[in-house]
Design a protein around this nucleic acid. Sequence first.
DNA 1: CTAGGATCCTGTCAGC
DNA 2: TGCTGACAGGATCCTA
Length: 313
Amino acid sequence: MPELPEVETIKRGLQGFCLNKKIVRVKSYCDKSLIGPREIAEGRTVEKFRRFGKALVVDLSEGVSLMVHLRMTGQLVWVSSSEEETQQEEPSSISTSKNAVSNVEIIKNLIKNRFAGGHPSDNFTDKLPNKQTRVEIEFEGGGKLFFNDQRKFGFIKILPTDEVLQDKFIASLAPEPWKMEAEDFYQRLQRHKNSPIKAVILDQKVICGLGNIYADEALFYAGILPTRKAGEVSKTEAKLLLKGACEVMEKSINSGGSTMATYVKADGTKGDYLRLFAQVFRREGEPCNRCGTEIIKTRVAGRGTHICPRCQK
DNA sequence: CTAGGATCCTGTCAGC
DNA sequence: TGCTGACAGGATCCTA
């Protein structure tokens, strides 16, 4: 799920909460979610955050690093120590009007003491750890960082800092769109000329950062049908597509991660930033904002795909 | 090397 | 109600 803008938003948010804090304990609830020896992270201090595409790297003191990949359903939730003293009630019935007011207060308090990012779900306001908690990192002073992941595709890997760049995923990543020349991008597309353009731009070795949302949004921006063969995308179109990738992701980062969470509105119901942002993603059946034609959902490269059949050629 | 499909895992939802 | 299959904001592995 979480694509580059969400990971960037998490990076920025977590920096504010746990930079210079000391890890006292790393607890694993699921063997496959925590890779590497947890002991070498305990007692180390958080010194720096780095992001490589959709991967987040937390550098600790004495040459140890954590590499986090959220994959489809991962999320990171920081819970500050002040919440632990006050957190008692669970906001379980926010949809019932009777309790709406008090529950809004509870949720507001929770949010004040939390920072959450990644796959949006109720876990953001749930009591933690919960059933989906895979790793729990406790800091000196009581703050905690929870790694939750429904499908267990994501992971936290503990490794020496000097081995981060040799990690297979990180080593093979292509540049981010804003660091790539249009000509280079075009040449990369040509290397996969018989694949649908959408499949190619989802390949992190071709261009990094895009996932299913921003791929659809960038293709809409450039007016390109996702089913087109990459080899048949012209230089001009490639340039526009690269620009679209930059625009949609930058816009998302600047608004705090368009897909960050469901947020709680004043009436206790939930809103979704994605809906304010997306032109096509999950808008099937709704009119295109540009031409009014109905957005349709199809399947391309094994992924749900949203297009405006009129704006995209 | 590329291309396409299966696969990892849990949860939810539509359809019967 | 219970069952079944499809699908899900990702990436890798296997096969041809």
